[in-house]
Design a protein around this nucleic acid. Structure first.
Lengths: 183, 183
DNA sequence: CTGAAATGGTTGCGTTTGCAACTATTTGAT
DNA sequence: ATCAAATAGTTGCAAACGCAACCATTTCAG
């Protein structure tokens, strides 16, 4: 039975405050920026965020398998599969089976797809410019470093946690899978 | 008919690269950290991320309306409504109608809810500590500043964009609502 | 050479999501 | 005092999500 202290008022242990909590703040920030960019393109180009990620990835790399797109754009393979299917049926993306490995297929942008990419890319870039305008070069570098460092660190940390849980993780088998979705 | 230049090779316009694109990078980072923290608590406490946000918010503020929780934790009111309903039925949260305004109700943690909060909070804080370990004080301050500045800026920018679109936004009424979900 | 394991990709399914519409109550204008 | 607009919160619904299971093909071990 857990003894519930109603707020310990203990100054030694720092209290958790959601809006000082980094993962939470990062989620809010990420959502704000995504929302912003998406508003710039989704309406006039009729492209959702997952779709845009695919188009953007193919815009950079010309020809990729679905697997590679997923790896590069951090999307679940089913999400890629369905979005790609949609984009193909809308004539944005083209599929071409790899004859050397019949399991996979190379995906690329059609002319229409490239037009969409060329249309959205400047909008996306302009969003980024507007986002960091008001920062000087040093501050911009600091932002970039911060994001890079945290990403590296959080990746490592996630692996650590996974490993920890893989070891001692047979404790509470009654607990549900606990879907890890958004923030 | 859109003329699709197959990669302009124009060095004056900077090309878009997804993994240098700040909104994208922020989304990846946010997802990584969320995933990490959630793994620390979801299994042993049986609490989802939206639920944890509610518990955390109530842990700090003791007594809030659903509306206030939503505003504070950046969650859609239907998400709050359903998660709260769940938490109440599980005895984690208590609802108490405001007699001065019968539309709303004050929500607070039960003893069990507080126990969960007291259990998760240190885990969350330890995650944060591990995340920024290896950074010196200056770098930590830089991270905090960067997140704060970008959040402020992206909020302002989003408002600008909304205003722009509210004005000239009657152009393409055929475009679908374009749900703005995750990244 | 054969069969098991691995890999690329799709699909069925139950859950979660957000939007729109709704109820109930309060506020504000006339 | 009355009625329209605003606000808190819930719910129906369709879309989107991720997991697990699956098919097809390739790789690898013995």
């Amino acid at each position: 039975m857990a003894t519930a202290r109603p707020a310990p008022a203990d100054p030694s242990t720092p209290r958790l405050e959601l809006d000082r909590f980094l993962p939470y703040r990062l989620n809010v920030l990420a959502a704000l920026t995504s929302d912003g960019v998406a508003r710039l393109y989704s309406r006039q180009f009729g492209v959702s965020i997952p779709e845009w990620r695919i188009v953007a990835t193919l815009g950079e790399h010309v020809k990729l398998t679905a697997h590679a797109i997923g790896a590069h754009s951090h999307m679940h393979k089913t999400k890629v599969s369905r979005a790609v299917g949609d984009l193909i049926s809308r004539g944005v993306v083209r599929r071409e089976i790899n004859k050397d490995d019949l399991r996979e297929a190379f995906l690329s942008l059609t002319a229409e797809g490239r037009a969409i990419y060329e249309g959205i890319a400047p909008l996306a870039l302009s969003y980024e410019v507007r986002l960091v305008e008001g920062l000087n070069d040093v501050e911009r570098a600091a932002v970039n470093d911060a994001v890079a460092t945290l990403t590296r660190r959080s990746r490592a940390l996630l692996d650590e946690i996974k490993r920890e849980q893989a070891k001692g993780g047979k404790q509470d088998p009654a607990a549900p899978p606990a879907r890890l979705r958004d923030s």
